[in-house]
Design a protein around this nucleic acid. Structure first.
Length: 278
DNA sequence: ACCTAAACCTGGGCGC
DNA sequence: TGCGCCCAGGTTTAGG
């Protein structure tokens, strides 16, 4: 579920609520949250619940960071907990859900709960998040000026995959997921199935500003909450009221009125207007 | 190296 | 109501 705007919203909420607080106790009801679901990742991260608790309990939260869709809780000794919410993960302060996979009890009395219906989400410990391979594999951030049209042109050169697929590739630009890939391509009048290397520099310029626009708008609206996403207070965002193509197959195009089409591209649903997008 | 399909897991929604 | 199928905001892995 959560893409850059949703993770950014949670990050800002947690900054306000939990900086300087100390973790007093941790309950892990689903240990898979520490190791990941897939077998390969499991073998890489062999940590027991007990070892995990020993690393974290007693530490003071210094700040929160975000890289792509990763949320990083950094402690005052420089170590960190790195969270990824995957499809249905939620991080909620004072949650009453009852479906928590992990709960962090602060000495202040506050709780931070990781709730996650599909159990894809993960938490892992890092002595130094800036040296973490998972973080360093990420491409540029879309909102810090590094995602230029020239950069995309270079990144897309000789690539036969669709522009939609490459926007979802976190090693090129990080933080964009299927909602914002679809919305940005619509706003830039580019069909998602276009071969990436054939998108012109002029079109990429439009795409860069479209990506930034849809992400910033969603941050202002506190994220897209059609399904499970909620902020750190457990409240829904409002961006689902402003999106125009994602999840709207068969509805009329907001620009020309023609029925929106859906096409599965490299395993992901793309929705687009065959009249407006070229 | 690059590309796609399948897998991971759970549950909502829809058609019959 | 119930069953079976399709779908899902993400990433990893297997196989071409």
């Amino acid at each position: 579920m959560p893409e850059l705007p949703e993770v950014e919203t949670i990050k800002r909420d947690l900054e306000k609520l939990l900086v300087r607080k100390v973790i007093g106790r941790i309950e892990i009801s689903d240990p898979a949250i520490l190791t990941g679901i897939s077998a390969k990742v499991k073998s890489r991260r062999n940590i027991t619940v007990q070892q995990f608790k020993e690393k974290i309990v007693g530490k003071q939260i210094h700040k929160f960071n975000r890289r792509g869709k990763y949320l990083i809780m950094e402690f005052s000794d420089g170590s960190s907990l790195i969270f990824h919410l995957r499809m249905t993960g939620q991080l909620i302060v004072q949650s009453t859900s009852g479906n928590e996979r992990a709960i962090f009890f602060m000495n202040s009395g506050q709780t931070l709960s990781f709730v996650d219906r599909r159990r894809f989400g993960e938490i892992f410990y890092s002595a130094d998040w800036k040296k973490e391979p998972a973080i360093n594999l990420l491409g540029v951030e879309p909102l810090n000026g590094k995602m230029t049209a020239d950069f995309l042109k270079e990144s897309f050169s000789n690539r036969t995959a669709s522009v939609h697929s490459l926007l979802l590739n976190q090693k090129i630009v990080c933080g964009i997921g299927n909602i914002y890939a679809n919305e940005a391509l619509f706003q830039a009048d580019i069909r998602p199935q276009r071969m990436a290397q054939k998108v012109s520099l002029a079109e990429l310029k439009k795409l860069v500003s479209s990506i930034q626009d849809v992400l910033k708008q969603s941050i202002l609206h506190r994220g897209y909450s059609m399904s499970t996403y909620v902020d750190a207070m457990g409240k829904k965002g409002r961006n689902q009221l402003f999106t125009v193509v994602y999840g709207k197959e068969g509805l009329p195009c907001s620009s020309c009125g023609k029925s929106l089409l859906r096409k599965v591209i490299a395993g992901r649903s793309a929705v687009y207007c065959s009249n407006c997008q070229k």
